[in-house]
Amino acid sequence: MKRTARRLVIDRIACTGHGLCAELFPEQLALDDWGYPIQSPGPIAGGDTRHAQRAVAACPALAMRLEAARG
């Protein structure tokens, strides 16, 4: 199975600071004091994609998406 490297993109305007994403994808997401996500940069390592997808799906504000790392 071919895996394309992916990158997590957060729509800062849509984000309402629910913080669910950081519970599900702590590999790349931490929360600041107000509950908004702080993202460590870089593409998502292969095995983490599933976790990232769960975080994207759980975001109540639909503020996150996964994009191809290049382009």
Binding site: H18, G19, L20, E23, L24, R54, A58, P60
Partner: peptide
């Protein structure tokens, strides 16, 4: 509870949503 951002001590918020 989810929309009010209720955060129980022993449970993740994502678990409330799930």
């Amino acid at each position: 509870a989810g929309v009010a951002r209720y955060a129980p001590a022993r449970m993740g918020r994502f678990e409330v949503a799930a």
